[in-house]
Amino acid sequence: MVGYKELKNLQGRIVLITGASSGMGEQIAYQAAKKGAIVIGCARRIEKLEEVVATCRRISGNDAYAFQVDVSIPNQIERVVEKVESSIGPIDVLVNDAGFGLMKEALDFDMAIAERMFRVNVLGLMYMSKYVALHMAERRRGAIINIASIAGKIATPKASVYSATKFAVLGYSNALRLELKPLGISVLTVNPGPVRTDFFDIADESGHYLDSIGALSLNPEIVAEKVVKSIGTSRRELNLPEYMQLAHHLYELCPRLGDYLAGGIFNKK
């Protein structure tokens, strides 16, 4: 059996999730706990994270652990991975969810924030993936899930920097998938549209974006359920809502029409 297929049953498996203190990361933690996983939550906000892992313990009846980590600092990533591997057990599943965005046009963008966004959204994900995958490779078993975005497939105004980070995540993940497959490690990218989480507390300075798109926004619990369900499969991408995959294909086939739609009808920022 291919290594990652052994992870279809998560009972007693160790699932490490970055950005687990809120939003998608929090919901993925709960869904993994429902499957009996040992959840390792990583985030900067340790108080909120402790509440999340306490809930995971109640859900799973199993252990759960909180580690305060800033993924923009490589040494912190390396330390927590080694701590988990040496003191708790082998990391079977890695979910890279930590990230942030900001809706602002490129000419007005603070480049210090742009640099931090790349350190968190891209480099933090790369460091975490490498340090965890080195251990997974020794066991020839593992699953890596990188939370990207539909913004990494279809760029829209006021998302130039954020889209750039997610395009980078997709490029890295697509190559990583090919490199790790012979080692029994799967790599899945998740590309959701707007999800109703506190991500927009920072990203949307106007406070009106989710209201403007209404029913088009996604339920984070449903997205998280689909993500966890994909563990142990060979699926390479999860695009949500599913019609966005069709929109991406049309964008590539008809780029002028795609630009018109992305800059007009689909631009709600």
Results as ranks from 00 to 15, higher is better:
Val2Ile: 01
Tyr4Ile: 01
Leu10Asp: 00
Leu10Gln: 01
Leu10Tyr: 03
Gln11Thr: 13
Val15Lys: 03
Thr18Leu: 13
Ser21Gln: 13
Gly25Asp: 13
Ala33Pro: 11
Ile38Gln: 01
Val39Tyr: 05
Ala43Leu: 11
Lys48Thr: 05
Lys48Asp: 12
Glu50Gly: 10
Ile59His: 04
Ile59Leu: 09
Asn62Val: 08
Tyr65His: 11
Pro74Met: 00
Gln76His: 14
Glu85Ser: 12
Ser87Tyr: 13
Gly89Leu: 11
Pro90Ala: 07
Asp92Met: 09
Val93His: 09
Asp97Phe: 02
Ala98Glu: 03
Glu115Tyr: 04
Arg116His: 15
Met117Asp: 07
Phe118Tyr: 13
Val122Ala: 06
Leu123Ala: 00
Tyr127Gln: 05
Ser129Met: 00
Tyr131Glu: 08
Ala133Val: 08
Ala133Ile: 07
Leu134Ser: 13
His135Asp: 10
His135Lys: 09
Arg140Ser: 14
Ala143Tyr: 00
Ser149Leu: 03
Ile150Ser: 13
Ala151Tyr: 02
Gly152Cys: 03
Pro157Cys: 12
Pro157Asp: 08
Lys158Pro: 07
Val169Lys: 00
Leu176Tyr: 10
Glu179His: 10
Leu180Thr: 00
Gly184Met: 01
Leu188Gly: 02
Leu188Asp: 02
Asn191Gly: 11
Thr197Ile: 05
Phe200Glu: 01
Asp204Asn: 04
Asp204Val: 06
Glu205Gln: 11
Ser206Ala: 09
Ser206Trp: 09
Tyr209Glu: 02
Leu210Val: 04
Asp211Leu: 06
Ala215Trp: 10
Ser217Asp: 07
Ser217Lys: 02
Pro220Met: 01
Ile222Phe: 02
Val223Asn: 02
Val223Trp: 00
Val223Ile: 10
Val227Gly: 02
Gly232Arg: 01
Thr233Lys: 05
Asn239His: 12
Pro241His: 02
Glu242Arg: 07
Tyr251Phe: 15
Arg256Val: 06
Gly258Tyr: 12
Leu261Phe: 14
Asn267Ser: 15
Lys269Gly: 14
